Simulated scan of single mutants.
Amino acid sequence: MLKQATFIVLLGLSASAMAGDWQVKLGASALAPQNDDNGTLNVPVGGVVTPLKAEVSNQVNFTPSVEYFFNNSPISVELLLALPFDHDVNIGPIEDAASFKHLPPTITAKYNFKNSTRFTPYIGVGATVVIPWDEELSQTTKTATGAESLDAEVAYGVAGQIGFNFQPADAKNWGVFVDARYANVKTELTAKTANGTKVTLGDLEVNPWVYTLGYSYKF
């Protein structure tokens, strides 16, 4: 009898927890790495290891997301997705020395400041992961360094978020939103020479701001 009662209580709690709302969002995002300090790479130039400053390019792309609002609570959880971002990297005096693509899925727990207006500000904190692929070195970089290929590690970091959602007076489910995210994330770069020797270049500190404007739909 006790087991049955416990099961019924747990089932009721689960149903209550799942009785929230879902929201889908589609935005256009500008991803702006912290260009004043993307780290220093130890690059072999002419056989001599030289510390050179790295700079990662800005990019714009579409970023859909899915958000779950817990029932009767200002708390929600949002998962940010994206189409692949494609970045160029300047290394010291070498412009477009390397390039890479990456996906930045990010999850944040958010607090929504509900009020009597149609603006709902929110803040959030969570985690992000950078999944790089298609890393390439330019021919200029290959000639200067003797390297033939580049590898970037999958990286993890902490993310923060601030923004607001606005629902027009004639809107039942849809709205518009604006937000900004910051992620503290870096990836270790390794170059490989023609004879297979691996050279650790150091950490590429991306640390991007992501500014997003888009539409939201709640159901």
Rank of each mutant, 00 (worst) to 15 (best):
V43L: 14
V43R: 07
P44R: 03
P44E: 02
V45A: 04
G47Y: 12
V49G: 12
T50W: 06
T50N: 11
L52F: 07
L52T: 13
L52D: 12
L52R: 09
A54D: 04
V56N: 05
V56I: 14
S57E: 08
N58I: 02
V60T: 13
P64W: 15
E67F: 03
E67A: 12
Y68V: 05
F69E: 08
N71H: 12
N71S: 14
P74G: 09
S76L: 07
V77R: 06
E78L: 14
E78D: 11
L79H: 10
L79F: 13
L81I: 10
L83T: 15
F85N: 15
F85G: 09
D86W: 12
D86A: 05
H87R: 13
D88Y: 08
V89M: 09
I91D: 04
I91W: 11
G92Q: 10
G92F: 10
G92P: 07
P93W: 11
I94C: 03
K101A: 06
P105Y: 07
I107S: 07
I107R: 02
I107F: 12
T108D: 03
T108P: 05
K110M: 07
F113I: 15
T117N: 11
T117I: 03
P121Q: 10
Y122P: 00
I123H: 05
I123P: 03
G124Y: 01
V125R: 00
G126F: 08
V129K: 00
V129H: 01
I131K: 01
P132I: 00
W133Y: 15
D134P: 02
E135F: 04
E136F: 01
E136C: 02
E136M: 02
L137W: 01
L137G: 01
L137H: 02
L137D: 00
S138M: 01
Q139D: 15
T140M: 08
T141Q: 04
G146A: 10
A147D: 09
E148Y: 11
L150T: 07
L150W: 04
D151I: 01
E153C: 00
V154A: 08
G157L: 04
V158S: 02
V158D: 06
A159L: 06
G160M: 12
G160H: 02
I162F: 09
G163L: 01
G163V: 00
N165S: 04
F166W: 14
Q167L: 08
Q167H: 12
A169I: 13
D170M: 11
K172T: 14
N173Q: 13
G175S: 09
G175P: 00
V178K: 07
V178D: 02
D179W: 06
A180C: 13
Y182C: 00
A183V: 13
N184G: 14
